[in-house]
Write a protein that binds this DNA or RNA. Structure first.
Lengths: 330, 330
DNA sequence: TTGAAAGCGCTAACAA
DNA sequence: TTGTTAGCGCTTTCAA
């Protein structure tokens, strides 16, 4: 079997307590013993057993992350930030892909509790009563990213309503008056409702009435962006600019337009949402609402492990201007 | 504190041994006791402590994954497969972003050993002697994905040489004779060397001599694809088709070409490598060498946990034909 | 069918 | 400065 603290103690002619002290940088041993013990540790290639440590310390130095999907750029950008900060703090991260599936999510929460993780970060997921109850009875720290909840849980997110309002206003200011929206999943109160409202309010505020034909719903994916673009072309042929609730959908719209030979931004302007890596790689490079995803990921770890450290919960957004929006001014 | 097996035992008037048996579906208790104990478990909301279990079973039901980067599509696609299969097998996955940094990688390996993970998967990373020694002395199962090593470690990957040879031949068969290559990181023996060799051999086999002007090196990223494309345009102006060693670089090339007003595939054809999600979203949709990344991820878990199950180590590739390669035939 | 008790590898009183 | 010892929460002999 592997080498334990006992082996080290025996070999160095000290007690396990002393070895433990040295391992943990506590006081209570002479320089001489320290040298000797450290030498033995090296010779034996001793590696402390984190499981045993976890049992007694009630700290596993690992945190769990629930994400709907690992392979989309939005989530993986947030994840990258989480991983980075966790590593800096000496924590490991366990990833759990929920697929937006309630059963799966609950089962993952269960696993994380049993594994006694020190905290949990939930990304872009609506918090059901079941989740909340599970969290509450286990009273383990939780931080939400890119989502928020009526249950009292700390979160980090952008102001979706305002961001959407700003994106729409941006199009208006560029001289557009026929503006459509490819929204996210209908009934998604977390991301879709506020963004749609922001869109409607921004247009209402400049005396444009929003009708059903101007909004189509997708599910944030590339494919649904294609469909949404198709819908909009039919339902709202006068459209000159479109606000897409995700970059993925925006890129889908771009694709369809390319296929149809409709030029962007000459004939139709597109603005996305998220500013994931896709945006700058799109053709043409995509103008979009930027969320600081990586930073949000990093800060969620701060918020989780370092609660005294004040972190703003509503993060700033801005418009990353690239080449998909045409200006009609002068 | 939280509820332990002792609490359950006391409440149910049995010994902890009996509770443990029931928890683990062993034999040695009456139906009646089982009912009673399970009732108490539910009432108390008892959750077994996986840390304590891990200590005694020497199994943590978690595996560690080392990836250079979480936020690129190549890695996250593999990761998604790993996560899915691990979950099906009842394992959790810990992610470790190496940044291709040796120190960081070693430190992560260390952590994974200390946390007593049941296995480790290493994605796209060259295995140094240091890594190998660490793995060997800890004798813990390891599987390599999209990389392989002279040290005897099981791996899952595509035949890079052959795939590259095939991609190049594909261009030749489409009637191209001025073919360039944007290769990966120079001196990367794992991915770059075989791909460059496949490119050269394929051209040599049709009597085309490959000169330095025809190959430029990048680092697999979008940005380096832009630069590479720029280089090639200068060094090899007659070029009509380019083989890019990653989709990211291919998309970079596409971007530059778009900016310069050079039409794809009319003036220049592009073929990528990987078939990540970017490929189908590119404008125009990118023809590319497909690797079954998700499946490779899934199967790496099989190989890790289910060694008797035979898994082919060299996975098939194919060319996903889309719209970036022009044919000059007839 | 059941329970007592040893022990997984470690930390942390408490004593010396 | 050092060691002894009692757990952490669980599983697993061994005995009853």
């Amino acid at each position: 079997m592997s080498i334990t603290i006992k082996d080290v103690a025996k070999q160095a002619n000290v007690s396990v307590a002393t070895v433990s002290r040295i391992l943990n940088n506590l006081s209570g041993y002479s320089d001489e013993t320290q040298q000797r013990v450290e030498k033995v540790i090296k010779e034996l290639g001793y590696q402390p057993n984190a499981v045993a440590r976890g049992l007694i310390n009630r700290k596993t130095k690992t945190i769990g992350v629930l994400v709907p999907n690992v392979s989309d750029l939005f989530a993986s950008e947030v994840l990258a930030g989480i991983e980075e900060q966790a590593h800096e703090f000496g924590y490991s991260v366990m990833i759990c892909k929920t697929d937006h599936d309630g059963k799966r999510t609950i089962s993952y929460l269960q696993t994380l509790f049993e594994k006694r993780v020190d905290g949990i970060i939930i990304v872009s997921e609506f918090i059901t009563l079941d989740y909340y109850k599970a969290i509450e009875t286990n009273n383990i720290p939780v931080v939400l990213v890119a989502t928020q909840s009526d249950y009292s849980l700390p979160f980090i997110k952008v102001d979706d309503y305002q961001a959407s309002y700003d994106a729409t206003t941006y199009l208006v200011k560029k001289g557009h008056s026929h503006i459509g929206m490819i929204a996210g999943t209908e009934n998604d109160v977390n991301s879709t409702t506020p963004r749609v409202k922001g869109f409607i309010d921004a247009l209402n505020d400049v005396e444009i009435t929003v009708t059903n034909e101007m909004i189509t719903y997708g599910d944030f994916t590339f494919k649904s962006g294609i469909e949404g673009m198709n819908n909009l072309l039919k339902s709202y042929p006068k459209v000159t600019a479109i606000f897409c609730a995700s970059d993925e959908m925006a890129v889908g719209a771009l694709s369809l337009l390319y296929k149809k030979g409709i030029r962007v931004p000459e004939s139709i302007s597109i603005i996305g949402y998220d500013n994931t890596a896709t945006a700058e790689k799109a053709i043409p490079p995509l103008t979009t609402v930027a969320q600081p995803l990586y930073k949000m990921g990093k800060d969620s770890i701060h918020l989780l492990l370092d609660p005294p450290l004040k972190v703003n919960q509503i993060y700033p957004h801005h418009i990353a201007e690239r080449d998909t929006v045409r200006s009609y001014n002068e």
